[in-house]
Design a protein around this nucleic acid. Structure first.
Lengths: 238, 238
DNA sequence: GTCTATATTCGGATAGAC
DNA sequence: GTCTATCCGAATATAGAC
């Protein structure tokens, strides 16, 4: 119980709806956070205007770039899609590259929080639930953000590229650790199992053309993922 | 036995080495095939020269583009890396876009062959082996090609983008079909299992920075994948 | 805070000499 | 068959008016 008293309220969830209600990285709040973190490079001073523009810019980016790629998206495309002029764009962002970096920053914050929340659980079953559901739900709400970072990591400067890859490694490492706690005596390669689990979760945001449409709900998908993991490591659920 | 007599010799394999020996899409042979298929748009007439240049061009593309992305790679970058001049490049390829299209064509041929070979097997256990090992081994030998298509599908014209996505769907569909043959009475969602399997295979060529280095061999990885699949569908191997 | 207009660089592609 | 030289459009980014 020790550390669990310190947990954020939204670190306990068993359904998507429940998670979504406590998830702060969405809506205007999200863009406020981005604004706060990038005040120095954003020329617009009033939060009200900056937030509105950032919202337009990211929406436009996530509308254009999945179709043709970030590098092929010109700022003129972005200007047309946002309704802002070239000058208007540059008053809200430092450069084109800055867009990609901001995406990376936001996703990094969210990913860290997922791992943190999970690591705070003493019970490995709860910990597994938390990381799987947390990752799946977060990347559902922020689908465009996760998808963008996945495919556009190459568009980042070397340092941020490294950071982006590490996000994934941390998920795998954390999950493998939990799995070892669940079955301390197993001689299975838990890194392998965790790799499988992570890539299964990524499937949803990486290949929306395959999953996004009808088929299964996120909650069902979460159940399926967990069941598959338990089966793989021969863990009997009560 | 009926159809298995018609199979290509290299459709029977149980190890990477064995597969590699019968795999024709590598070395000079590969570039001969590309040359034959693109004679009309390649200005160089002598196969000897064309093959040598194509080899340089694809090697350079696979060296530069994973780091910065295909769109960010300029033909001047390519010129520097290949040692060919701008004019020299354009005598061997029709355009920059043509490079991406040729990659897609080659990968499509290989993927089709994997599915074909697998579908030719009457025994579902053999069929599963064939598709899993075929996909894994092919994408190991042609790692750069598969990786490129995965991340640069966006750089293709709409029509080829569609074709590229279909390649993946065909793998999943084929694998799901085999799994249903293996366990006809199971009420598991075999599309889900196949999706998991395919994304596990893709892991290797999609994230080489995670897997390529030391760790497990391809053969071990194949065994692990197959074991995981069997476990998932509760199939007892003899 | 947002626009228009423009500076400047760099991209893909081609023509024509060798 | 390959190279050099060059065209031309398009890209990022900025200056300064409103």
């Amino acid at each position: 119980m020790s550390s669990s008293a310190l947990q954020l309220q939204h670190s306990n969830y068993n359904t998507f709806i429940e998670f979504e209600n406590g998830f702060e990285y969405q809506g205007e709040r999200l863009y406020s956070i981005i604004f706060e973190r990038n005040k120095e490079t954003i020329k617009v001073n009033k939060e009200k205007f900056a937030v509105r523009n950032l919202q337009k810019i990211f929406n436009a980016t996530f509308s254009i770039s999945p179709k043709i790629g970030f590098q092929a998206m010109s700022l003129r495309d972005l200007s047309a899609e946002t309704g802002l002029s070239m000058g208007g764009l540059y008053s809200s962002i430092a450069s084109k590259e800055a867009i990609a970096i901001m995406v990376k920053d936001v996703v990094a914050i969210v990913c860290d929080e997922i791992v943190e929340n999970s690591m705070a659980k003493d019970d490995p079953v709860e910990a597994l639930q938390t990381i799987v559901r947390g990752y799946l739900y977060s990347s559902t709400i922020m689908q465009s953000w996760f998808n963008f970072l996945y495919f556009e990591t190459k568009s980042l400067p070397d340092l941020e590229q490294e950071a982006s890859k590490n996000l994934e490694l941390e998920q795998v490492t954390a999950m493998a650790k939990i799995l070892r706690n669940l079955k301390p005596d197993s001689d299975l390669d838990m890194e392998f199992v965790a790799t499988m689990a992570v890539s299964l979760i990524q499937e949803r945001y990486v290949k929306p053309w395959k999953h996004h449409q009808p088929k299964t709900t996120v909650d069902q998908y979460a159940v399926d993922c967990l069941a598959l993991i338990y089966k793989t490591i021969d863990y009997q659920i009560d």
